[in-house]
Simulated assay, not measured.
Amino acid sequence: MDAKERIETASNFLLQSPPGEINDVLNDVRNIISDDDSLQDGIQSTLREYNLEQFITVDVPGAQHQTLISRAAILSTEEGSKERFLDPRSKTSFLFDHLGLEASDPQPYEPDADSEAFRSALETATSAYLSSHFVEGVAAVFVTPDAPNKFTVQIVSNKYNPNNYWSGRWRSEYAVDLSDSTVVGKIMLNVHYYEQGNVQLNTTHNITIALPAAIVTSAPAAAASKILALIDFEETKYQTSLNDTYSEMGEKTFKALRRALPMTRQKLDWDKVLGYKIGAEISGSKGLSRRHEL
């Protein structure tokens, strides 16, 4: 395998990194490549793709909150590994380094006046939703470029517990289209358990919500609150279905994989297991003695 193939392999590993574990994966692939300069040059685009897809969070320069690194937040691409992103909440743009994961050079940003009232109302409703369901979550609401009646709501919540060998990430994204009276979104869930093993859950659930005319024509604050209530209903329903699925797997699916009875078709008396073992050893010893005599 040549250097280019090793870089491509390393990139594939990085894109599949579980939540909060990309640095661990990167340290492992460094041992495979054994050339930090080539590795850094070769994985810049991979790290960018990972950050954008995973809704990586970053502290906003000059603010007391975090925002998301995502495609909806991109304002412009700079030279090298940096891009300029938007934080609508603070009306600030900033440079983000995909390698160093740092934000810098904050600049004021003037939002579109025709869209800001509804965008701000969606942001307020989303923040209230976060405080109820994702205590450590981060969200952002963006206006779709050149479409003042279209908005993107993005939510991410991370849970890292390396001491107990698990990590997880909940991401959800919704395109709110007032002109079409629809909300189209998806929930992306990643969970990794790795205590004495390696089990991952990667799933995506698509959602489409038709907005009644009464919501679309309401005042921004009322409409935004009702839209988030509909999102809350769909996400709660999906989480409940996941809980039911895994409960059924534990009670039925996994039990069905196990043999109900031994091949003798008789239940094993666990109180006599030690006796069985001793008896087998004695029988084995007698067999050896007879063969020795022969």
Rank of each mutant, 00 (worst) to 15 (best):
T9M: 14
N206A: 05
E78M: 10
S132T: 03
Q54I: 03
G250H: 12
R84W: 13
E173Y: 03
W166F: 15
K252H: 04
D24I: 07
D180Q: 14
W166S: 10
A175L: 14
A223V: 06
S181V: 06
S131E: 11
G250P: 09
E281D: 04
G185E: 10
R30K: 15
D24S: 09
I278V: 04
R291M: 05
S132V: 01
D28V: 10
Q196W: 05
L122D: 08
P262H: 05
H98D: 04
D36N: 14
F233M: 09
S127V: 06
D180E: 15
Q64H: 05
R291N: 03
M188W: 01
E173Q: 15
P19G: 03
Q40N: 13
E136R: 05
W170P: 05
A214L: 07
D97A: 04
N12A: 10
F134A: 01
D269T: 07
V29F: 11
Q154V: 03
T208C: 06
A175I: 09
A121G: 07
E8M: 06
Y246Q: 10
I33S: 13
T77G: 02
I74G: 03
V191N: 13
S157L: 01
S181Y: 08
L14G: 09
T152D: 11
N243L: 13
I227T: 04
G284P: 03
N202C: 02
T240V: 11
I227K: 06
A63H: 02
A213K: 12
D177T: 11
Q66G: 04
Y109A: 05
V176L: 08
V29Y: 12
L15D: 14
A222W: 00
A103R: 08
N163Q: 12
S38E: 13
E293H: 02
D232W: 09
T124P: 00
Q54P: 01
R71H: 13
R30N: 14
A147K: 15
D37G: 02
S172A: 13
E53F: 06
Q266E: 15
P148M: 10
V273F: 12
G284N: 14
V184C: 08
V156Y: 00
T264M: 04
L86W: 00
K91Q: 15
T208H: 13
H133Y: 09
E8R: 04
S70T: 12
I231M: 07
A121H: 01
V191E: 12
Y50N: 05
